[in-house]
């Protein structure tokens, strides 16, 4: 399987993501420069974390206008899998590929901590290797991860099973006091209606090996690999 990893100026998670999918999981991976208007042949696109263009205006607000995002939109329209991690999630929301916005954390501070994530929907192409209600131990690292959307959108997401990951305790209990950023309904990750575009604030690539604290993040990448293999079969 061949992953394309989008690099904006200011992206810093591209090498970590490359290491996880290529170095740890043995898949092909290539970087895609933000100025590229045409994508090469990729089986999945990852928009990794960082501060695209510095994010001085609003996270992801400039990145959405980059030439590469038009190509990513086209790729997603054709059903190609797109995963946005942290800043990548923000870029996907800004681009309209996912609903809602990511606001500043409610406590106004940056947060770098390990979180536990309850898998709410284990049937997506990003979570098929998990079991429903399983928790994944994956860290966050953001100042703007407070997911918000209007009531109708949230209801639709809830009703459609589009909320994939929620901040929980290690037993899967979801409560306001475990919420690290103020996200509505403890939302940590969502998919689009079609199920091929996912955004998540936690960093699966930072949880890719036991030596660095855990490898639950591989569940996300392995699910994408499994889903791709199934599409070939």
């Amino acid at each position: 399987m061949k992953f394309g990893i989008v690099v904006f100026p200011g992206t810093w998670s591209e090498k970590d993501t490359h290491h996880a999918v290529n170095g740890v999981l043995g898949q092909d991976a290539e970087y895609i420069w933000h100025g590229d208007e045409v994508l090469g042949q990729y089986d999945a696109i990852i928009i990794p974390g960082g501060f695209s263009y510095g994010d001085y205006l609003r996270s992801g607000a400039i990145a959405r206008f980059s030439p590469v995002m038009e190509a990513v939109q086209h790729f997603a329209d054709k059903g190609g899998p797109v995963l946005g991690i942290c800043n990548g999630f923000q870029v996907l929301c800004e681009s309209g590929l996912l609903p809602g916005v990511l606001m500043r954390n409610d406590h106004l501070e940056f947060r770098c901590i390990w979180t536990d994530l309850k898998v709410e929907n284990a049937s997506t192409m990003f979570t098929s290797k998990a079991t429903a209600s399983e928790t994944l131990h994956i860290p966050i690292s953001h100042g703007e991860g407070n997911y918000q959307a209007d009531e109708a959108t949230v209801d639709r997401l809830e009703g459609n099973g589009q909320i994939v990951l929620r901040y929980s305790d290690s037993s899967g209990n979801v409560s306001p006091d475990i919420n690290p950023n103020g996200s509505i309904n403890n939302i940590a990750g969502i998919v689009n209606e079609r199920g091929n575009v996912m955004g998540m604030m936690p960093h699966p690539e930072k949880a890719s090996e036991k030596l660095i604290g855990g490898d639950d993040g591989n569940v996300i990448f392995s699910s994408m690999i499994e889903s791709f293999a199934a599409s070939l079969a």
Binding site: W12, S13, K15, D16, H19, A20, E109, F110, R111, C112, P139, S141, H203, E205, K206, S208, E209, I212, G213
Partner: peptide
């Protein structure tokens, strides 16, 4: 408040 994980 500091990212101590990046670069993995």
């Amino acid at each position: 408040q500091y990212d101590y994980h990046v670069q993995t």
